[in-house]
Structure formats: C-alpha cells, structure tokens
C-alpha cells in the first residue's frame, strides 16, 4: 500500500464554549507551526454536509479528533461516516492534567493560549506516533 505521510486534524470548533476555541487554535498551531508538512485539516461542517473530498480524505488518511467537551461531537461525526479515527484528544482531560483553563470563547487569554499550545503539542506527538506506525506497516508489507 502506498505510504502517504499525512495525518488529518479535525477540531470540533464548538462555538458555545471556550474549549471549542481551544480545539480550533490548537489545530491551527499544529498545521501552521509544529507539523506543517505532515498534517491537513478539513472543515467539519463541510464534511457533515457531504463534501466528497472531505469524506474521501478521512476514510483514506488517519485522523486525530480534538473534541472540546465530553459530548464528543467531532468524534461521533467522523465515525458516523466511517472515518479512519487514529486518536481522540478531549480538552477536559488535558485541562485536568495540566491544571489550565480557558475562560473566554472569543479570544483566548494567556492561560487559554497555554492550554491550546499544550493540546497542540499532544496532537504533534500523536502525529509522530501515527506516522511511525504507518511507516513500519508499509515496510512490513514490502
């Protein structure tokens, strides 16, 4: 199987809560700074609306879900259409571990930004793990 070193990062971007903003900013940090050549994102609303390219991408490539709350809307949405879910990161769990909280959904304050960066680092670690696993499987198949 052809090894394409690309991982999808899909944040819920929930509008009601600051954690939704954290998912969004964390995803952008990964895409723009931490792993720019190894990651892509899709617009979740477009995927839900039946975007063909988005649906094909999440079936073909491993996806890291970033959900802002325990409802897990992004994960449910991706799994509903047989997406290739490789990891799920939930903001409340990261908040508990690093004792950081986001308070403003419009613009993150310093602690919210720090939380987003911690989440981004966790995503990047997952990206490395997933790509390493893909590479190993690809070599085994050859």
């Amino acid at each position: 199987m052809l090894f394409i070193p690309m991982v999808g990062v899909v944040p819920c971007s929930g509008e009601e809560i600051p954690e939704g903003t954290v998912t969004r900013i964390a995803a952008r940090i990964v895409l723009e700074e931490l792993r720019p050549t190894q990651t892509m994102t899709i617009c979740l609303p477009l995927y839900l609306a039946g975007g063909k390219e988005e649906r094909d991408f999440v079936r073909r490539q491993p996806i890291i879900i970033v959900d802002g709350c325990e409802k897990g809307c992004a994960e449910k949405s991706i799994r509903k259409h047989n997406g290739n879910v490789a990891a799920v990161i939930r903001i409340p769990e990261v908040m508990k571990e690093c004792e950081l909280q986001a308070k403003n959904r419009v613009k993150l304050d310093d602690k919210g930004e720090e939380l987003a960066r911690r989440v981004a680092e966790r995503i990047a670690t997952e990206v490395d793990r997933i790509l390493e696993e893909m590479k190993r499987k690809s070599m085994e198949e050859e």
Binding site: C12, G14, E15, E16, G20, K71, A74, K76, S77
Partner: peptide, 12 residues
Amino acid sequence: TVCLPRLVVEDD
C-alpha cells in the same frame, strides 16, 4: 449560539 456539530449528531 449553539455548537454547530451538536446539531448534526443524533443524540442531542
């Protein structure tokens, strides 16, 4: 506002 993904999942 309401989180947009909440509208599409089936159990909300």
